[in-house]
Structures are given as C-alpha cells and as structure tokens.
Design a protein around this nucleic acid. Structure first.
Lengths: 137, 137
DNA sequence: CTTTCATTTGCAACGGTGTTGCAGTATTTA
DNA sequence: TAAATACTGCAACACCGTTGCAAATGAAAG
C-alpha cells in the first residue's frame, strides 16, 4: 500500500485512488490485463476514460508495457523498472489457448537472431501460444 | 491472374472480383496490410464488410495469417501454403519504426526457447521492431 | 489549516474497428 | 439454362479508444 504510493511518487505521479487501484490490480492478478479486464474489476468506481488515461500514463512512465496477442492488446507490469526514456522488453509472453491468460515469462530471454544485412533491431517481442501448466493436465 | 483463381480454387473458394483484388493486393505490396490499407486501396469498389469477410475467409483457409504490432492487427500472405487444419508460423516479422511497414522475414526461423516445466508451446510469433534497410541510411 | 495552482477526473460526444442479419446478387454444378 | 449454394451490400449495432471541457481533487506554500 505504501509501496504503491512510492511507485507513483518515483514516476512523478499524483497518488489517486484510481491509480492505486489499477496498480494493485496489476500486482494481485499476475497476468496481463486488458482495459476491459480492469473495467470489469474497477468499472463501478471509475469512469472508462479514466482507466484509459491511467493506462496511458503508466505506459508513458514505464510502469507497464503492452502485450500483444491475436485477440488484442493487454498490459503487464514492467519487471525491471523501466524509465520514461528507456524500455527494455526482450522478454517472452506466453498465452494459454485454454484459459486465455497471458503471462510474462520472467528470466527467460529471447535468443539471438541473425538478421539480414541492413536491419537494425531495437525491440524484441516474442509471443508463444500453447497450453500453460495449469491447463496442461 | 490465372494463378489467383487457382489459389482460390485450391481452397474451395468461389472466384469473385473482390477476392481476386484482395489477393493480388497482398501479392503486389509485399508487406503486411491492415483492413484499413485494403479499404484504402479497394474501398471504392467493395463494401467495408465484404473486405472484412474476405480477410476472415482467407484467414480460415490459411491463405493469410495475422501479424501483430503495437499499433494493431495486420495480415500477410502465408508463404508455405498453410491449410485449414494446420498453421505453422514460426517466422519473424520486422516492423520498421521509420516507414511503418511490417514485413515477414522469410527463411528466418525463431531459435529454440527453453520453456519452464509444464508449458506446451504450439505457436511462435516474434516481432522485431527497429529500422529496416530502406530507412537505415 | 487554508488558499492556490496544477493535475486529474467524469461526462458527453465522436470516429474507428469489427460483427451480424437479411435481402438481393453472382457463381458453380449439372 | 436452371437450381442450389455461396457471396455481397446495406443497415444496424457493440466495442474500443480519444478529445474537449467543466468540476473535483491533490500537492505545496503561506
């Protein structure tokens, strides 16, 4: 709770109940969340637009990052605290086709890829789809 | 032209001008296309909805596949003809942040990833963002 | 504690995306 | 050429994400 405020303060954001709630939702549910998920969880307390703006702000400040799967856009906490200037996201996301959850695989890094001449890579994003341990029985 | 019809026939689709035009657009422009791109190119001739349905049909038949980047959804031709049953897409997409184009890197495959216990992968999707050869000067 | 100022929120409205139902049209097959 | 089937266009709709503006809230200073 105090830690939430600390996180917001570090990123020069005012502490508001919406931001606290969104942030703690990300921390509690560990998987990636869509705007719709958050609206489902917090929608009675906050306006749609406010949640959109909160996500946008968190994105810009490097608190969360985008996660893409074939169904659309989600967001997940940045593990290694990213800054507004630098986002380093060469980690892997796993989407389970059974339960639908998408998770970051921490500590897993994307193996080096040999690109053809002239390509200058800056960001890597690997999405693996399949079945997760929970659903794999 | 005759080849287009052949492609449609192989997948048990009726040859219509819309399908021919959409397919030839994919073949001519080599990069991944969004629905909006196609609507821009063909929108005067066909209804929005028809283009959506054409894309959906091509997806199901394995003629095209989805390409995701942080701006949304695009589609690209399947190189190794996929079937309705099996889609194998362990190739790499490169999105240029300068010109905005997204391309499939043919012949490039995603290196093996060691997943934690219990994860059963089925599909791999690697998006690399950076600068492409055309823009890299 | 109160005042002030900047930031944040809620509301209303809007454009874009993608889907569905249905009637009419085009394509295939025989 | 006719009949059956598949495809298209139109209208309508739900959902996603954004913007402008007025009101409310938080931070900081007196």
């Amino acid at each position: 709770m105090e830690q939430l405020r600390q996180t917001l303060k570090v990123h020069h954001l005012r502490t508001t109940t919406c931001r606290e709630d969104v942030l703690s939702t990300f921390i509690n549910k560990k998987n990636a969340l869509s705007h719709g998920d958050l609206e489902g969880a917090l929608g009675e307390n906050y306006d749609r637009v406010t949640i959109y703006r909160t996500l946008k702000t968190f994105l810009e400040k490097g608190i969360i990052h985008k996660v893409l799967d074939d169904e659309g856009l989600r967001y997940a906490l940045c593990s290694h605290s990213c800054s507004e200037e630098k986002h380093q996201h060469d980690h892997i996301h796993f989407k389970c086709n059974a339960c639908g959850e998408t998770n970051c695989l921490e500590n897993q890094h994307i193996p080096a890829v040999q690109l053809p001449q002239g390509y200058k890579p800056e960001n890597f994003n690997l999405l693996i789809q399949g079945t997760c341990p929970k659903c794999n029985n």
